[in-house]
């Protein structure tokens, strides 16, 4: 019951989801949609568990007055404010969407924009070529980078009558080695994913179930 039960249950649900892919039986389609809904409910309830964990994590810092506990106050205040705002004023108007639009969204966008700087520093690191493969990565990266800006069209070389701009070479790199890399990785990952999923359904892979499973 404790060990085999969850594995058998997982097997049955997994098989239902597998079989529905190959059938068009309305009853199976309905159960499939039910399973998707159950998953959302399970996730929603677990999110409460997660938020409680976040709250306790910061609450303990405040209680123990550990270094930087003031920032934990900010986190808890932000969390409780959003919940209270949604409960009192609703999700559509008032402070809840305002906080999303003017606090959360700008901060998220700025974190995303930091990538421009990090790409630069990572490029710099790549420039310090350490091996043949790093040199390949760097060369392809520079060609594609330059090939995608107007300057790249002006840079190039002639072979006989043909003019090869960096833009053209960049397109060739994207169309062939890049596509091959993506496809190769994709097929390999696909095999790994499928094998793991089969092991999960058959109960061979059960680390995720925890102790004694």
């Amino acid at each position: 019951m404790k060990r085999t039960g969850p594995v058998v249950f997982g097997f049955l649900i997994g098989m239902l989801m597998l079989i529905q892919y190959f059938t068009q039986v309305p009853w199976i389609d309905d159960r499939y949609n039910n399973v998707l809904d159950w998953k959302q409910v399970v996730f929603g309830i677990t999110l409460i568990l997660g938020v409680v964990s976040l709250f306790l994590h910061h609450w303990k810092k405040i209680e123990r007055k550990t270094g930087g506990w003031g920032y934990s106050v900010v986190t808890i205040a932000g969390l409780l404010f959003m919940i209270a705002a949604a409960l009192i004023f609703g999700r559509e108007e008032g402070p809840y969407p305002w906080m999303f639009d003017h606090v959360q969204a700008p901060m998220q966008s700025t974190m995303f924009a930091l990538l421009a700087f990090y790409v630069a520093s990572a490029s710099y690191r790549a420039f310090r070529v350490r091996s043949f493969h790093a040199a390949l990565l760097l060369t392809a990266g520079v060609i594609v980078m330059l090939g995608r800006v107007p300057l790249g069209e002006m840079m190039g070389f002639h072979i006989g009558e043909h003019y090869f701009s960096l833009g053209t070479i960049s397109t060739l790199i994207l169309d062939y080695p890049n596509l091959a890399a993506k496809r190769g990785v994709m097929i390999g990952v696909g095999l790994g994913m499928t094998a793991t999923a089969i092991k999960i359904i058959l109960g061979i892979e059960r680390t995720y179930l925890g102790k004694g499973a």
Binding site: G50, V74, G78, F81, M82, I83, M111
Partner: peptide, 15 residues
């Protein structure tokens, strides 16, 4: 800290 708190609250309400 504010981003973590506000976004955790936001997604909790949404879900």
């Amino acid at each position: 800290s504010l981003l973590v708190g506000v976004s955790a609250g936001y997604y909790l309400v949404q879900y």
